[in-house]
């Protein structure tokens, strides 16, 4: 896979974090399906996609059931981890900016927010081993790696070193 200069460096983008009070709250309505639907746009989701509770509990997750395109899906609703929030972002409409800025325009704005996400498996019960659940581990790893080291941390670390 060849990377051009741009992708090596990554794209520079900005997310406008201003959230207006009218931003829709999609909590309970965000679904991650085990498939790629090759369509972007509005759809009558709530009229067709009807998750139902199963009464089953797997590793502390309440299992829901739904179907999509004839396949049976089993899923669970996960809260967005503490300290994080879920946002749907979209490119800020170019109309708001001057034409001269267009070339570098990569500004995104918040279109909606959500506090949980329901992820779905095809044919298997949700489990803590699912890649999506595990991908959230990154957040605690990132926190441990990046949080500032306090004097106490250093002191306890050096005591540990001496013990060994």
């Amino acid at each position: 896979m060849g990377l051009d200069a741009n992708s090596k460096a990554g794209t520079i983008g900005a997310i406008n974090q201003k959230i207006s009070e009218t931003v829709p709250n999609l909590t309970g309505k965000v679904h991650l399906l085990p498939c790629c639907i090759k369509y972007d746009g509005p759809s009558a989701v709530s009229h067709y996609f009807k998750p139902k509770p199963t009464g089953l509990e797997m590793e502390g997750m309440k299992v829901e059931e739904a179907c999509f395109r004839g396949r049976k899906l089993q899923g669970a609703r996960l809260p967005i981890p503490n300290g994080y929030s879920g946002f749907v972002i979209r490119k800020q409409s170019p109309g708001k900016r001057k034409a001269s800025d267009m070339s570098e325009d990569n500004t995104w704005e918040v279109a909606a927010k959500f506090e949980n996400i329901t992820y779905w498996n095809h044919d298997s019960l949700p489990s803590k081993d699912d890649a999506f659940v595990r991908s959230l581990h990154l957040l605690s790893v990132a926190e441990a790696l990046h949080k500032p080291v306090t004097a106490e941390d250093l002191a306890s670390a050096s005591i540990d070193m001496e013990k060994n």
């Binding site: 991650l32 399906l33 085990p34 790629c36 749907v88 972002i89 498996n121 298997s124 019960l125 489990s127 081993d129 699912d130 890649a131 999506f132 991908s135």
Partner: peptide, 12 residues
């Protein structure tokens, strides 16, 4: 199920 794969673009 342990080997299920995830697409980042499914996050939008």
């Amino acid at each position: 199920s342990g080997k299920r794969q995830l697409k980042l673009s499914s996050f939008g």
